[in-house]
């Protein structure tokens, strides 16, 4: 029975061999669950070929640890097949890059260069409000923990929307001679006050968020969605999302893939952080 199941799972790892429909009707639910990438941890292991098709962990020194044939088959099933923007040539190019014999690339849970984006819902000033929380893994006392690095709350960003815009609002350079009496003009209008700040000023939305939370203006309700952004493979970015849907192409899958250089990376990070 066990061998039969392994055979079926192995078949699931051969993309294109069987369409999902026939797979379902032939094997039933349990084999589908085996094939799905059930945890982010399993995504890491499959990406690196560090587990058997029955989900048993391979350790360094085990015969099939990071076996390239197994890895190639695993990599093929780790993409969201319903995403047209992840084309076959793009996928192939990525797989070739990570499996380059001279310098293969593996994912490292503790290696940095990846973070999570968690969509939550808070009640802010009595109104249900989406808040995106960004987190990364941080080492402490030889252990690890997820820490909040940034937040996105649209009303915070709207509050500072005039920042960086060309305008004629400034404190003239001789204001000091007047004991800065013209500060009254700075604080007359809430909409433009940020234009009087230094050019390198960036609002710290996380501090603002914590302040509002501590004041009792923000109340946590729930988590709505989780995704991960990976920059660990040189020259590539990919997004990891969970797909809760029938069939084998479900669970944690690559939901976005891009070839990027260092400049693109900076731009992409700004985009992801809504900056």
């Amino acid at each position: 029975m066990h061998k039969f199941r392994l055979l079926l799972i192995s078949l699931a790892l051969l993309p294109g061999l069987l369409p999902a429909q026939s797979f379902n009707s032939l094997l039933g639910d349990e084999s589908i669950l085996h094939a799905q990438t059930k945890q982010v941890n399993q995504f890491f292991r499959r990406f690196n070929a560090e587990e058997s098709t029955s989900g048993d962990r391979y350790f360094p020194g085990d015969k099939d640890y990071r076996n390239s044939d197994l890895r190639k088959r695993y990599l093929g099933i780790l993409f969201d097949n319903q995403n047209a923007s992840i084309t076959d040539p793009l996928k192939l190019s990525f797989i070739e890059d990570v499996m380059r014999p001279a310098q293969p690339h593996f994912l490292d849970f503790h290696g940095g260069q990846w973070f999570t984006e968690v969509l939550t819902e808070f009640t802010y000033m009595g109104k249900k409000t989406p808040v995106t929380i960004y987190m990364k893994l941080e080492e402490e006392n030889q252990g690890y923990k997820w820490v909040i690095t940034n937040v996105y709350l649209s009303s915070f960003h709207e509050m500072f929307h005039n920042l960086g815009k060309d305008d004629q609002r400034f404190l003239h350079p001789m204001s000091h001679e007047l004991d800065f009496m013209n500060l009254v003009r700075v604080f007359k209008d809430k909409a433009y006050v940020e234009q009087y700040t230094a050019s390198d000023y960036h609002p710290d939305y996380l501090t603002l968020f914590l302040y509002e939370f501590k004041k009792g203006n923000l109340v946590f309700n729930t988590v709505k969605d989780v995704k991960f952004h990976f920059f660990q493979v040189p020259g590539w970015y990919f997004e990891l999302s969970e797909f809760n849907r029938p069939g084998t192409n479900a669970g944690w899958l690559i939901s976005g893939l891009m070839k990027i250089n260092d400049n693109d990376k900076e731009l992409l990070l700004k985009y992801l952080y809504h900056e």
Binding site: K38, N41, Q42, R57, F109, E140, N141, G143, Y144
Partner: peptide
């Protein structure tokens, strides 16, 4: 499915 065990700061 059993994940890896990760050490926490404590």
């Amino acid at each position: 499915y059993i994940s890896d065990l990760e050490r926490q700061p404590d």
